[in-house]
């Protein structure tokens, strides 16, 4: 009898020691790690098509489908997709259009807005539009026209960079829970404004496109619940 009690107590002691050394399994920690992995994993789109002319997402039928595909890309850059604005352009114009996106792509790594715009200014080789316009003005004949046309192209590029930046900022809100449908619609609408900006025949039309873009951004923020 005494021997039985002794064995029982000994087992109890060892159990206590083992429990003290190992302790319970860490279920809470496991859950946390899984959650973090889900958040950090980029979304994988099943709709991403095979590469055509080195661009992804280009074969999808509608603008919204292409945008949805594009914002699901792991690393969005000029090699991954054909910018919508460049799609209707041909030849040299398309090459220049893609070059602009390529040159300014690095600027989206900069967090603050002023820094981002300064980076884009540097990328398109424009410092002070007013000063450069004054410099063009003192030139003569064809040289003056060429100078102004060059400045206009750069300034328009910078304006469209601002549109693109709004698209980028909208896309960032996906991680904060803003609906993908809302983001896709906003980006699609803004892409159409960019194309209309390119097609505009007068300064008034171009100005209207900027004002339209402003209104789209305001509406987007309201619908996204960021702004009342």
């Amino acid at each position: 009898m005494k021997r039985g009690i002794l064995i029982f107590v000994t087992i109890l002691i060892f159990s206590g020691l083992v429990y003290a050394a190992v302790g319970p399994r860490s279920t809470v920690q496991t859950t946390t790690i899984e959650t973090t992995l889900i958040i950090e994993s980029p979304p994988i789109t099943t709709s991403t098509p095979t590469t055509i002319m080195q661009f992804k997402c280009s074969t999808l039928g509608t603008l919204q489908e292409r945008i949805r595909c594009r914002i699901g890309l792991k690393e969005e850059n000029e090699l991954n997709y054909l910018p919508e604005e460049c799609k209707p352009l041909l030849g040299r114009k398309r090459v220049d259009c893609i070059k602009l996106y390529s040159a300014t792509n690095k600027c989206f790594d900069i967090k603050d807005e002023d820094g981002k715009l300064n980076c884009a200014r540097s990328a398109v080789n424009i410092t002070d539009v007013r000063q450069e316009a004054a410099n063009c003005k003192i030139k003569l004949g064809n040289e003056k026209d060429a100078c102004m046309n060059n400045l206009k192209a750069k300034a328009y590029g910078l304006i469209k960079f601002r549109f693109y930046n709004l698209e980028y900022r909208a896309q960032q809100l996906k991680d904060k829970g803003v609906s993908e449908d809302l983001i896709v619609k906003f980006i699609s609408d803004l892409e159409l404004k960019k194309q209309s900006f390119n097609d505009a025949k007068s300064s008034a039309e171009r100005k209207q496109m900027i004002l339209d873009a402003r209104q789209l951004w305001k509406d987007f923020l309201v619908n996204a619940g960021v702004k009342k």
Binding site: V129, A133, I210
Partner: peptide, 21 residues
């Protein structure tokens, strides 16, 4: 932070400058 400002004021100014030449 979500920056509310659209940054388009300077775009309008620059457009005025280049289109008025």
């Amino acid at each position: 932070n979500v920056t509310i400002d659209d940054g388009l004021d300077s775009a309008l100014q620059e457009l005025d400058i280049v289109d008025s030449q």
